[in-house]
Structure formats: C-alpha cells, structure tokens
Amino acid sequence: MTQLTAVSGANRPIVSLTDVIKTYTLGKVEVPALRGLSLDVYPGEFISIAGPSGSGKTTALNLIGCVDTASSGVVSVDGQDTKTLSERQLTDLRLHTIGFIFQSFNLVSVLSVYQNVEFPLLLQRKLNPKEREQRVMTLLEQVGLDKHVKHRPNELSGGQRQRVAVARALVTRPKLVLADEPTANLDSVTGQNIIDLMKELNRKEGTTFIFSTHDAKVMNHANAVVRLADGKILDRITPAEAQKAMAAGAEGH
C-alpha cells in the first residue's frame, strides 16, 4: 500500500497530532480512545478518517476541533499548540479557524435557516450587517437553500438541514472544516450531494476538510484516507486502496 504524506505544497501542516493519547474514565474504568496518534494534515487537503466504530475517529476530530483535550501528546491547529491555549483562546480558535459539520446537523431549532448560518458571523463581530447578509446569501445560494431562508430547521428535510450545517460551517471562511459522519443520517443521493458540495468548496476555496465516514462511496472523494483501528493509525492510503482493503475485509468475514 502507498503511504501518503503531504499532498499540498504548503510547508506547515494546518493540523498536527503528535503521539496523542486520549483516555476516558468511566467510573473506575479507564477506556483508551487514542493510543499515540500522529497525523499531519496540510492546507487544502480533503481527508477522510475511516475505521470501525470505537476506532477513535470522533475522538480525533474532537481533539482537532479543540472541543476536547488530549490526555497526552501535542495537538497543534493552525500552528498553535492547543494545550497552551486558554478556554477563551480555544473558543476563538474554533470561531475563526474551524468549521464544524455534525452528524445530527445540530442546528439551533428556534432560529431560521438564515439566522443559523449568520450566527457564527455575529459571534465574530467582524462584518457589518450588509456584508453579513451578502456572505450568508451567497453561501445559501451555493448550497441551494436561498429560497428557504425563513424556514426553521424542523421544516426542512435531512439533506436540507445538513446543507444548512455546511453553510454555517463555511460562512466564516475557516481554514479547516471538520465533519463527523456528515452523511450518516442522509440517504445515499443526498449524502452524495453533500460530499460533492464539500468537494467543490474545497476545490474553489482551498478549504481543508477532514471528515470521518464508514461509507466507501464517500471515501472515494477524499485525497487520502486515514484508517484508524483501536485508537491508532493503521495507514494513510488512497481512496482506491481503501476500497480494496474494505472489500478484502468484507470477503474475509
């Protein structure tokens, strides 16, 4: 198998994990989730993290997204060691550098489509109302929801909600977008549309995407697939190799 490293010309990785260990304590039992994970992701990459349930995909994304902290090791995002940052700085890093797309969409139910997408911009307080409106509407047009701006999330289909979530993740023009199983709650066609949308934005804007998935079809769109097992990186391979490996695994069973 081909061990893929940097695909981008950039020198400095946007995400760098070095010997990261994460252990959860459940009562008196310690459950290891990551056991010495090292990974570099460069700007503009479109990377899939694959692996069975419990392999550590979500934990890795949480650490990269600065919503959780490692038990040991170094997690560096956009050149900053997250362990050295205060809670306020971590929140600022999430706000200005990272966009999140969640498996269950996680939209604010009482806000409209427009307000959900606008929300991170309001938190940033960088743009004036006119610029904000322009930015939000452009994105909503891109994701095909410009006719649904006043709808509440419960008035939308699953695919539409995920597209709102994509727009919300991208509205701040983050350097890095993390997507945890973004297609898991969608039918295959809608899931494909979402991946196509992410891919297009990756190509046009150069935004780095790291997403976790079980789905081989989704993996196909990635530049590289990082396979995890038992909290460790198994390998970093091409999507084609990942397909083969999955097929072989299925036959083996």
Binding site: E87, T91, D92, R94, L95, G99, F100, N106, V108, L123
Partner: peptide
C-alpha cells in the same frame, strides 16, 4: 445541553 455544546463548538464564549 446539546445546543449549548454546539454553540460552544462553533465559537460562542462562555459569557454569551
């Protein structure tokens, strides 16, 4: 709680 987690994840400070 999930909504609070999401808002914190997308960059809302504790004070907000």
């Amino acid at each position: 709680t999930r909504e609070i987690g999401t808002l914190r994840a997308i960059g809302m400070q504790r004070g907000w």
